[in-house]
Design a protein around this nucleic acid. Structure first.
Lengths: 354, 354
DNA sequence: TGAAATCGGTGTAACGATGCACTGACCATA
DNA sequence: TATGGTCAGTGCATCGTTACACCGATTTCA
C-alpha cells in the first residue's frame, strides 16, 4: 500500500499538484466549480490524506496541540486531558501530552521543544505567577493558552487564560462553611508560589473578614515547604495537614477549605487516621469536583470547575487563533465556579470535641 | 532566531552535511576521531537539534510513541499514561495521546491514523479479544504493544503484551475473601467482551471451586448490557450493581470482587446509599490499586498492577524494538499481581444482616 | 480595435535530513 | 610502476507539500 500523494490526486483529477494544494488550503478564489468537484472526487476515491511531515517541513507548523499538565496521573488533570483530547479531535488536531511535574524548568523545556518541533499552540497548565520562563517563545509567535491560571498583569499580550475565578471560588467555599456556623476554618494548601493558591486564599480571607471574623484567629497550617512535590502527592499534603492541625485538639479547626479535591481527600484520610469523622466532626470542602468527590464516603462538597467547557474554550483559542495569523488579542475567560454541596460539610458540632 | 540546520553544523565543523548525518545516525564506522569531535563541538555550540519533520518525511517514521487508552479521565489510565510519558521521555520520545472510549472503531481509526502519520510504535490499551480490527496495520510493520490485555492465541506474532496475570489476580482476590470466611461472594463487572474480565472471572471461579463451593450458588449480577459505555462510567456500574444485588437482601452477597477499583468505589457508594457499611457489612475488593484506593474511607483492598514497571516495559518494547528492524518476536510479559489488603475487606459478619 | 485586466491555472524551487553511489588520496602487493 | 584495495568523506537525488512568479486565453473598456 504505497502512499497516495498529492500528485496522484492531481493526475486523477487532471490538474497540477499546485491546484490540488490550492484546493486543500482553501485558496479556491480562482477555481472553477468543475475543477473543485473533480479534485474532491479524486481525493475521496483515492483515499488521499495529506502527509503531515511534508506539510510541517514546508511551512514549519504542525496541526498538533501541545498539552502540558502537572501530571495526568492526577485525576483532575487526567479528566481535563481527556476533555482536551475530545475537543481537539473535533477540530481535527492531535494532542501531544507532557507532564511538567510542576517543575518550571521542565515546563520551559517542554514548551521550547514543542515550539522547535513546529507546535504553534500550547495549552499550558501552570500556576506559576510569571510566564518569564517561556516568554522568548511567546515573543516568537507561540499561541499560549494557560489553563487554571487567570491572566496576570505582566503576562504577554498574546497569552490567553481560561480559568475559573478562584477568588470567588474561595469565597463561595468559605461562605458555605460560615453559613453552617463554623467559625474556626483552616485553609490547607501545599504549593506556595501558585497564583491559584493565592487567589483562593484571598477569597477565603475575604469571606472570613466579611463575616466579621479575623483570619489571624483561624488555625494556621503553613504547609510542607518541600521545594519539589508533584501533583499526586497532593493527597499527602492533606494527610499531613490533618495530622499537624489536630496535634493540639484545643486549637483545631471545625472546618477546612482545601486547595483541591486530592488534598481534601488526603485530609479526610488524615482525619480518619485520627479517629475523626468527616462531616460530623470536621467539615471539609475541596476544589475541582473530580469524579471521586461524589464517590467518596462521605461524598465531598467541592467547588466545581466546568472542565468540559473550559477544555473546549482552551482548544478553540489555541487552534482557531493559531490558524489565522491575526494578532487578535484573543479573549481570556474567567468562569464562575459552582459550589456542589454534598455530605462532607455539616453544621458545626453543637458540643466541642472532647 | 532562524533554525540551525545540519548545513550550519557541517559548515562549522568543516565537513559535508552527509558526514554530519552519518555522525547523527551512528554510522561512524569510517570516521576519524578528530572529525567526530569537531562535529560534536559544532553541534553543541550551535545548539543544533535535528528537524523532526524533515527526518520523518525522509524516512517515513517518527520518534513518537502512540498511546491509546480507553480514557485518561479514568484515574487508572491517567496514572498509566503518566508513567508511559515518564518512561518515553527517558528514551527521548514524545507521546501522542488518544482516547478510544473503548470503542473498537475509534481504536481502529486511531491506530490507522497514527500509522499513516509515521508513528511506528503504539501502546494499545484494549481488552478486545481479537486484534483483527488493526491487523492490516500490524501486517505492514507496526510495532504494537498491548497493555492490560494478555497475549491471545490468535494474536499476530509480532504483537507484544504487557499485562498482569488476571487469572491469578482473580484467584488471589477471591481466596482472600474466602479466607475471611465469606461464602457468598459476587463478581461485579460491566464490560462483557473483555479478555480481562473473563480471565479475572475465571480466577474467581477457580478459587470458589477450589474451596469446594459452587459458582452457581453465588449471587449473580449480569451487568448492564449497555453496548456503549466509557471508562469513567465504571463507577456507575458498581453503584447499579449494589442496588440490584441488595434488592433482595436474603440473597445478597457478604463480599464482592469488583472488576476494577472504580467499579469497586462505585459499589461502595451504592452500599452507602443503602445504608450499609463497607467492611463491616460487606467486604469489597477491587483491581488496579489506584491512588484513591488508599485514600478511600475505608481504604480499599485491591489487587495491584505494577504500572510503573509495566509502563517501562511497554515503552521499551515499543521503542527499542521499533528502532532496530529485527523481526525479533519480542517478549510478552505476564506479571504477577500483588494483593494489597486494606480495610474494605473484613471477616464475614457473625450475625446475618437484618 | 488594441491595450490592459482578469481568470484559471501551472512550473519550480525550496523546506531539512538521508543514504546510496561515488571519488580522490593513500597504501600494499606483484 | 601498474593494479587493486581500503579509507574517509562527499554529491546529489529524494521524501510530499507549498507559494510565488509566471503564462496563455478570454474579457473589458476607452
Amino acid at each position: 500500500m504505497a502512499r497516495v500523494t498529492i500528485q496522484h490526486v492531481a493526475q486523477a483529477a487532471g490538474v497540477s499538484p499546485s491546484t490540488v494544494s490550492n484546493f486543500l488550503n482553501d485558496r479556491q478564489g480562482r477555481m472553477v466549480a468543475a475543477t473543485r468537484t473533480r479534485i474532491e472526487t479524486a481525493i475521496s476515491e483515492l483515499g488521499y490524506r495529506p502527509n503531515r511531515a511534508a506539510r510541517q517541513l514546508r511551512n514549519g507548523k504542525t496541526q498538533t496541540v501541545g498539552l502540558v499538565v502537572p501530571s495526568v496521573g492526577n485525576p483532575f488533570w487526567g479528566a481535563f486531558a481527556h476533555e482536551v483530547e475530545v475537543a481537539a479531535l473535533a477540530l481535527g488536531c492531535s494532542v501531544l501530552l507532557c507532564n511538567s511535574e510542576r517543575d518550571p524548568e521542565r515546563e520551559r523545556r517542554y514548551v521550547e521543544e514543542l515550539w522547535e518541533d513546529g507546535v504553534r499552540s500550547i495549552i499550558l497548565c501552570t500556576s506559576l505567577p510569571s510566564l518569564d520562563h517561556v516568554s522568548n517563545v511567546i515573543a516568537e509567535g507561540l499561541r499560549l493558552v494557560t489553563f487554571d491560571r487567570p491572566a496576570q498583569p505582566n503576562d504577554p499580550e498574546s497569552v490567553v487564560s481560561i480559568s475559573i475565578d478562584n477568588n470567588v471560588g474561595g469565597q463561595v467555599a468559605t461562605a458555605h462553611l460560615l453559613e453552617l456556623g463554623h467559625t474556626s476554618i483552616a485553609f490547607v494548601s501545599g504549593s506556595i508560589r501558585s497564583v491559584n493558591r493565592s487567589a483562593r486564599y484571598r477569597g477565603y480571607c475575604d469571606a472570613i473578614e466579611a463575616a466579621g471574623l479575623s483570619v489571624a484567629d483561624m488555625p494556621q497550617w503553613t504547609g510542607m515547604d518541600a521545594a519539589h512535590f508533584g501533583d499526586v502527592e497532593a493527597a499527602e499534603v492533606g494527610r499531613a495537614a490533618a495530622r499537624d492541625l489536630f496535634a493540639d485538639p484545643k486549637n483545631a479547626p471545625t472546618a477546612v477549605v482545601a486547595i483541591n479535591d486530592m488534598t481534601a481527600l488526603g485530609f479526610c484520610r488524615g482525619l480518619r487516621d485520627l479517629g475523626l469523622k468527616v462531616g460530623r466532626d470536621v467539615s471539609v470542602i475541596g476544589f475541582d469536583d473530580i469524579i471521586l468527590a461524589d464517590l467518596y464516603d462521605p461524598p465531598l462538597t467541592s467547588v466545581r470547575q466546568p472542565i468540559t467547557r473550559m477544555a473546549q474554550l482552551a482548544v478553540s483559542e489555541a487552534v482557531e487563533r493559531g490558524s489565522n495569523e491575526s494578532t487578535d488579542p484573543g479573549s481570556s475567560v474567567l468562569l464562575r465556579p459552582e459550589l456542589v454541596v454534598r455530605e462532607s460539610t455539616e453544621h458545626v458540632p453543637a458540643t466541642p470535641r472532647p
